[in-house]
Amino acid sequence: MVLEFRDEGIYCPAGRFYIDPWKRVDRALVTHGHADHAYEGHRHYLATHEAAPVMRHRLGEIDLESVAYGEIREIDGVRVSFHPAGHVPGSAQIRVEHRGEVWVVSGDYKTTPDGLSEPWEPVRCDAFITECTFGLPVFDWLTDAELSAQIDEWWRANRAAGRHSAIGAYALGKAQRVMTMVDASIGPILTHGAVENTNAVLRRQGVTLPDTIRVTSETDLKAHPGGLIVAPPSALAGPWLRRFGPVSTAIASGWMALRGVRRRRAADRGFVVSDHADWAGLNMAVRETGAERIFATHGYTAVFRQWLEEQGYDAQIVATEYGDELLETEEAEA
């Protein structure tokens, strides 16, 4: 086996490295900077140039080496390279080749381009280790054009009614995607500190984002009426939002496709914006890799495995600590 599944994470015995390990290891190859993939405490990290700044921002002083997309590294005779996953800026699938056999670890991915993340590319392989967060046929995303029209309409209506529009979106990825999706000419974009800190990191590495205003205790909110407030979902439920006065709230998440979840979140609106592949995206990705062996890591693994098996694949489930089926992801980066 090129890769095996250990208590610490996905392991390459020939190269003696781990991919996205959740326990402390010597050498970690990391697909992207989200907390359930980039854990702290490893001795040595390897990630893409584009993912590195955010990882340093989140994990502090770490021993981190970075590589370009497509650049091949030899680690103890194992050829390793990173390929765009389209999930968030800097996110990668990791290709591992040993003695002519190729395995790919998907990390989290989205097959449709979002104008922000490096667009997903299929990587041919023998074995594909894939997420399936939204691995059910009920998940079928709208196009970004349809989504931005929905969000713009909501923002415009609120602005006309003298309200702010507050949208809950994970600080890395979803928040930036929302602000690049909307028509920034509608009004000012106001950001929570956690979002703006990530913005600063991304801007420094050359990512183009619309103008934003960091909200602090000194910000004169009266000077920015009818703004789009972009904040982590948790901030929408807390006292932070009170300073804005009348406000309409929304959550941007793939889970908003389900009416029950949408209603439970008690936001005024739920926009189905996901950084993960939908059912069609997952199936397309699996097909395009040309792989015969598929390992489903996190999400609706049992369903997706059975489906793939019926499609003629050798499909298995691997227990990992990425996501937690629905809950953490619902709170975080889905």
Binding site: L136, P137, V138, L258, R259, G260, V303, E310
Partner: peptide, 26 residues
């Protein structure tokens, strides 16, 4: 109509928790 095996439709229904919505979504 959706081209799904019945077990997969049922698994979807289990998650969505609402028949009308499941049908609509698939």
């Amino acid at each position: 109509v959706a081209g799904l095996p019945m077990w997969l439709f049922k698994a979807s229904y289990d998650v969505v928790g609402d028949l009308a919505e499941t049908i609509h979504l698939v």
